[in-house]
């Protein structure tokens, strides 16, 4: 191929990519940033200002929900990692032959249903008229109906459930490549289970751990259905406030500011996670 044909094919392939990334991702986000610095003076005049951000810091309801959402998302991510790691280890290292493939497939099955269906399933199980409540009464362990829905524990159960697949798959992929001689060497050199786990297994699995944690954290922070349907009056999620501004109050400027803040929080935590673990986005995602 000569040089001009090479340039032509580069531009032919580059144009769709550039159109997609600018028109659907970059420009809309820049516009959202711009709108968040606007203040509506009357129905058709706008001025520049920081009012939307001042509102966020002045109204304790906003920033409390913001912090709560961040902290609960981090906790959920950590819990998901703890739940998923032994499962991934079993699939990658202990199961053999067909069992390995089957167990891996079994981990994927729940995710053929959408988040809404999964949340609905948990509601049927946990609510006052639900299956668990009926079982408890049938066993004689409870006198009347027991409400297990509409609290933070229920929300976390649902969020961990939603995140599991995205933690198990990268963990299995990295643990599959672990050389067992390294683990044996760790034991031969006198290490206990915990030392080997800390010094050999976790450093090896780090790309998988980071990639799983990033995806689960993003999903949790940005989730709406699970906290909305399973949470109680006090367990507001930050995404719900963004929805309220856009859908109920038509206050786009305030909604855009809250959106920018959420995006900032998620980028900050993803960036910190990558820095602290010494990984790069390309390595864990690409």
């Amino acid at each position: 191929m000569n040089a001009s044909a090479g340039r032509l094919s580069l531009w032919l392939l580059l144009t769709p990519f550039l159109l997609w990334i600018t028109l659907l991702v970059l420009v809309p986000h820049l516009q959202m940033l711009r709108v968040s610095f606007q203040v509506r003076e009357s129905w058709d005049t706008l001025a520049w200002g920081l009012e939307q951000y001042q509102n966020f810091f002045r109204e304790s309801y906003y920033w409390r929900t913001f912090l709560r959402t961040g902290v609960m998302s981090l906790f959920t991510t950590f819990l998901t990692l703890l739940v998923a790691f032994p499962i991934a280890w079993y699939i990658a290292r202990l199961a053999r032959g067909r069992a390995k493939g089957l167990l891996f497939l079994a981990c994927l099955i729940p995710f053929w249903a959408s988040e809404l269906v999964r949340t609905y399933g948990w509601m049927i199980l946990l609510r006052e008229s639900g299956v668990f409540s009926a079982w408890l009464q049938a066993l004689g362990w409870a006198d009347g109906p027991v409400e297990m829905l509409y609290n933070d524990v229920a929300v976390i159960i649902g969020l961990v459930y939603n995140g599991l697949l995205f933690m198990v798959v990268p963990l299995v992929t990295t643990l599959d490549g672990l050389d067992e001689n390294l683990v044996e060497a760790g034991y031969d050199l006198g290490g206990g289970h915990l030392t080997v786990l800390r010094e050999v297994v976790v450093p090896w699995a780090m790309p998988g751990i980071v990639s799983g944690c990033i995806v689960v954290f993003m999903l949790t922070l940005g989730s709406y259905l699970t906290p909305n349907l399973m949470g109680g009056k006090d367990s507001a999620w930050f995404t719900e406030q963004i929805f309220t501004q856009f859908i109920t109050r038509f206050n786009w400027e305030q909604g855009a500011a809250l959106g920018v803040l959420l995006l900032f929080l998620s980028s900050l935590i993803v960036w910190l996670g990558l820095k602290l673990s010494g990984q790069s986005l390309r390595k864990v995602m690409g």
Binding site: V25, P28, H29, Q31, M32, I214, M218, L221, G222, Y224, T239, I242, F243, F246, G255, A256, G259, L262, L263, S266, S267, V270, L281
Partner: peptide
């Protein structure tokens, strides 16, 4: 690494 809500909003 952009939450889905934010993509929709923007």
């Amino acid at each position: 690494v952009i939450p889905g809500v934010i993509l929709g909003v923007s």
